[in-house]
Design a protein around this nucleic acid. Structure first.
Lengths: 141, 141
DNA sequence: CTCTATGCAAATAATTTGCAAGCAC
DNA sequence: GTGCTTGCAAATTATTTGCATAGAG
């Protein structure tokens, strides 16, 4: 499986969007807009404002560089993805960590759904909650 | 094996919760807390307050009579389900309608995920967005 | 100069919380 | 009376918008 791993060099990005993308690229965990804003404030001295962060995220999502994830707790989370890609998470209720599923099971069903319901899939949301390996050990202690 | 298909008669519900459950049972579409609140105000003369609606929904979800759905647009939607059940939706971006998937594809993967990632699934979220049959016809016009 | 990007403050919107009154048993 | 339920208003939180300034070409 040749995943043609060519991380498109982000271009045409505003300064703010670039800063946000960088900040987002430095963390492995999902981050909220406010997280990013906070992180930028600490790191740089000339950090973009919250408004800019929101606007930057909006365009980055639009451009496909960033994926938005909504875990239902009132704030959206973001993470960097390969342009056009997307993925889903295993969110641990114990430690709050989230790992990517290396494969999107929904796509396997797209054809079936299309033919069964006559529904053409444009996008989807899939997040799985539970207890990760590590936390299972801790809990059963 | 008697499939004992007895729609558990909701008991022990507060007046408010009962009203909310009734209102929710009368609509086929997903409804927001505010929707329900509005509907209750119109219908009855002695309608519960917004606070009560929120609190009722919270307990109904807890009890398993109602399922909460978050489509990522900032407000949670609710619908009545058989106690303990849950299901996912095909949400049409054209007309906003949403239909249930008659089967939860995620459950088929639970074992695979458990053994592959050592992750124990407690719950999950799956919503599919696209264009329904009807709207495809309209759009291609 | 002209246009887009940015930032601050104010505006929204959904939901939650504090607290006093109402009802059930 | 005691305790759970309710409702109103105020508080909270995330996000958006108005508007005026700063920066790029």
């Amino acid at each position: 499986m040749t995943t043609h791993k060519a991380t498109h060099k982000p271009a045409n990005l505003t300064k703010g969007a670039q800063a946000v993308l960088d900040a987002l690229g430095q963390v492995k965990e999902l981050s909220s807009a406010q997280d990013i804003y906070g992180r930028l404030r600490q790191t740089g001295e000339k950090a973009p404002g919250l408004t800019t962060v929101y606007r930057a995220l909006e365009s980055l999502v639009q451009l496909g560089y960033v994926q938005a994830v909504d875990l239902g707790d009132g704030e959206k989370l973001y993470e960097v993805v390969e342009p056009g890609e997307h993925h889903h998470h295993l969110v641990c209720e114990g430690c709050g960590s989230s790992n990517h599923l290396d494969q999107c099971m929904v796509e396997e069903f797209e054809d079936a759904i299309r033919s069964k319901y006559g529904f053409q899939i444009k996008s989807h949301v899939l997040e799985i909650f539970g207890v990760c390996n590590t936390c299972q050990a801790k809990t059963s202690r």
